[in-house]
């Protein structure tokens, strides 16, 4: 599809066991893809917010939002407009760092990316970084040279800019 792109879907759902399974199951069953999904409590008790990154054209997106809306435990669904959305992801990266030179370089890179060193051992460093997925990708690229041992990414979460809510 020519107009296929990545979409940020924000869903307000009841915070109950099984909701994630319903949402994930819906995506599998209808053949929609999920690049990432994050869930956590929202501003309201008993209500959670899910952020789903999915790829598709307008027709697919329309189906995704409509089908999500049909789930009884889904209260609201919006396909967020990227320019008016703030999107952030958290990533933890564990790299080899046994040489002094490597260590200082890694720490410099982390600083440039406004990351933090959150764990140190004689042989490695663990960096915490938040930002857009692209920024995180860039830091990971730079750190490849030192030998990355482990990466843990949360997947992006998102919220609308300004006074508007979904």
């Amino acid at each position: 599809m020519t107009n296929e792109r990545s979409h940020i879907i924000s869903a307000v759902v009841l915070h109950r066991p099984g909701v994630l399974q319903r949402v994930a199951g819906l995506f599998t069953r209808r053949g929609f893809n999920i690049d990432a999904i994050t869930v956590g409590p929202s501003e309201k008790d008993g209500v959670a917010r899910m952020t789903i990154i999915s790829r598709g054209d307008e027709k697919v997106l329309e189906q995704i939002t409509k089908q999500l809306n049909k789930l009884i435990e889904v209260i609201k669904v919006r396909d967020l407009d990227p320019p008016s959305t703030v999107l952030r992801e958290l990533c933890l990266i564990k790299t080899h760092a046994s040489h002094e030179k490597a260590r200082s370089e890694i720490i410099q890179y982390a600083n440039i990316f406004r990351g933090r060193i959150i764990d140190v051992s004689p042989v490695n460093l663990t960096i915490e970084i938040t930002g857009t997925p692209e920024k995180i990708d860039a830091l990971i690229d730079l750190l490849q040279n030192f030998g990355i041992q482990e990466i843990a990414r949360t997947g992006p979460t998102a919220i609308t800019r300004g006074a508007k809510t979904i």
Partner: peptide, 11 residues
């Protein structure tokens, strides 16, 4: 049962 019937029930 819930898992089995999730895609074939309204709720």
């Amino acid at each position: 049962t819930l898992g089995l019937t999730m895609p074939i029930t309204k709720h």
